[in-house]
Amino acid sequence: MSQDILNRVKKVTVEELGVKEEEVVEAASFTEDLGADSLDVVELVMAFEDEFGIDIPDEEVGEIKTVGDAVNYISKKLG
């Protein structure tokens, strides 16, 4: 898992969800652990798209449940 991608996912998550950096661990679920509601998730996905210059289609958003999922998904996309 790329450390650079993890760090950038953490930064965006802290900014978008207003959570503490130490809470943003790989196992943390955006909705269960980090308090994101459905609108927060849409906003967060858009922020990942902007940060990494990628497109995340709506039908693939469901794959991204945890911080680790996001890192894996983005790594694959940038592959």
Binding site: S38, L39, V42, E43, M46, E49
Partner: peptide
């Protein structure tokens, strides 16, 4: 259009 924030309406 896909880049409009979901918080615009509320």
């Amino acid at each position: 259009p896909g880049k409009v924030t979901p918080f615009l309406v509320p």
